[in-house]
Design a protein around this nucleic acid. Structure first.
Lengths: 335, 335
DNA sequence: CTGAAAGCGCTAACAC
DNA sequence: GTGTTAGCGCTTTCAG
């Protein structure tokens, strides 16, 4: 005995498929008596519509996917959650898909492996190059998140990284820091995002007449607390002079604080620290972390709105929206 | 011009649908020359198979869903990630679905809203009652995670909460703690999970001849760092004697550490603290957190294996697997 | 207001 | 090896 289908319900209720379909979907109208009979038949059989069949027939899925590298990266977890909520309010379902930061997985997103599975995707690429993104099939509803490269034709939601990094760095300078490190330089080549934050950091140093020092550009291999810890312990043990650290993100900052504590360096007394993302955990670190707080709810709402418009057929040029961010000052820089 | 279908490719290549299907799926065999012609046609047209149609035809989706309350809960994020990886190794795709801890959303999972969308679901319920779980349609591939109630008929992967809580508490006692609080008692009624951990905590106190004290049962409204912070600050300010805290999970412990620092209480000198889950962040908290570490990779692999067996038609009785956990000792109890 | 029939795009028997 | 023909379960014209 396999599961009941629409025709089974129709047969039991003594009506046609169309009528059952109407009752199930609330389309058209049905006589109250008929409706009741159909409902009874549905209950008796335990009928559930087959989503896949409906999708095939309508061509619409009512579902969008959120493609991120990993939900274990707190920033992506928080964004996924907000995107989910934002999408629900406009009647869209969300599934989250992890690329694990792998270029081939990211390419698969663009290759529309999912054609027919979702109506569109909100995508935060981390490993793709501008070329990868350049040629995509048109008519594929796509909204890009993050500060990576985005072709003009594609919708894109971002924040002003350079300005925010400048502000965070200037804040440390205002607190009297003169030997400010930047934690989060990738080994090979800077990612687009890091490049912008790094640029803002340098602009602020410049503006204050401070000389950059390469020894204070702290390298990492991943954006993890582990790496932040390692890099800062390393810098301290090599005797590099430091009185402030601009961290590329809060995970690195988490590790940085741990490193400073473990080397008996007072925060913010000896070294002041800023993070980036305003993760939930940021205000529970010790000391609570000053961090660049992007307006995440607005990012989510904007992305969903843009995607919904694409899904509904908007074919115009790419929109590039810049969402505000704000430096959230806490004790890690309070001096 | 809509997107190309299998028939379009077939027409262009001058072959039948079946042949194209063979080439696309690697089924059957095709003459090299034919194969090449088909490939060329596919490239020229930019053809992508429609996943939905394939699903309808085969009845299998190759996808499972992971249903959790929220990816912003670090434990769920880590588990989702591990489940994803485990599923990939057996050729299954994973989509993550958030219930936001909402009972109606959780019921929707059981109601198989997704019928036809996924082959099965790995589900960590938080709001359901035993009754909710009791009557489900048979033949629906389902594996339950966590320590909630699980009907005998349903596969279930869990850890031994009572034993682990006893071990964590005994560890504090061995370190000389005599006034040990339990942080994480829910307001109304204990959840199944909390109840087990709470029971283990009491067993250890009993075994050491320590008297429980209701004032040291710290109440919370959510499992968040915010709540942990609030509850511990509250206890300190009310002058409740404390020299150890067993936290129901690492998020609460994060807030507890913050609270202790902000009230100048030394950890572990004045108060030793244990958490639960061994989140990534646990070893970067200050001081690094002693915590109950479930074997998460094994939980994930076990759950995927059980589900894969169900998907492949296993109809036997429910399997209830207990996975090991281990107390990970760090500085928050080092005294 | 309800019924019959034609697809949605693909896979899978079964012939050729 | 390759083509033909039914479906998968639903929605949707178009009649009645």
């Amino acid at each position: 005995m396999s599961r009941p289908r629409l025709t089974d319900v129709a047969a039991l209720a003594g009506v046609s498929m169309k009528t059952v379909s109407n009752v199930v979907n609330g389309t058209g109208s049905a006589a109250p008596a008929t409706r009741a009979r159909v409902r009874a038949a549905i209950d008796e059989l335990g009928y559930r519509p087959n989503v896949t069949a409906r999708r095939l027939a309508t061509g619409q899925t009512g579902t969008i996917s959120v493609a991120i590298s990993s939900v274990t990266v707190p920033y992506f977890a928080e964004m996924s959650n907000l995107l989910d909520r934002a999408a629900r309010t406009v009647g869209l379902r969300v599934v989250i898909e992890q690329t694990h930061g792998d270029r081939s997985n990211e390419l698969a997103i663009l290759a529309e492996r999912e054609r027919g599975l979702v109506d569109g995707v909100i995508f935060h690429p981390v490993a793709l190059t501008p070329d990868d993104l350049a040629d995509r099939s048109p008519g594929f509803a796509l909204v890009l998140l993050g500060e990576g490269p985005a072709p003009a034709a594609v919708d894109h939601v971002m924040i002003d990284n350079v300005a925010a990094a400048r502000e965070a760095t200037a804040h440390l300078i205002a607190k009297g820091c003169r030997h400010i490190a930047f934690l989060g330089v990738e080994g090979r080549r800077l990612t687009h995002t890091t490049g912008q934050r790094f640029a803002g950091y340098h602009q602020a140093l410049d503006a204050a007449g401070l000389r950059p020092d390469r020894r204070r550009h702290l390298q990492i291999n991943h954006y993890s607390a582990d790496e932040g810890y390692r890099a800062v312990v390393d810098a301290i043990d090599r005797g590099i002079a430091l009185d402030g650290i601009v961290c590329r993100d809060d995970s690195l900052a988490t590790g940085a604080l741990h490193a400073l504590h473990s080397r008996q360096v007072a925060v913010p007394g000896d070294v002041a620290v800023t993070g980036w993302d305003d993760l939930i955990v940021a205000r529970h670190l010790w000391p609570p972390l000053t961090t660049v707080g992007p307006n995440k709810p607005e990012i989510a709402q904007t992305a969903v709105r843009l995607l919904a418009e694409r899904v509904q057929g908007y074919q115009g040029p790419g929109r590039h929206e810049i969402v505000a961010s704000q430096l959230v000052c806490r004790d890690s820089t309070a001096r």
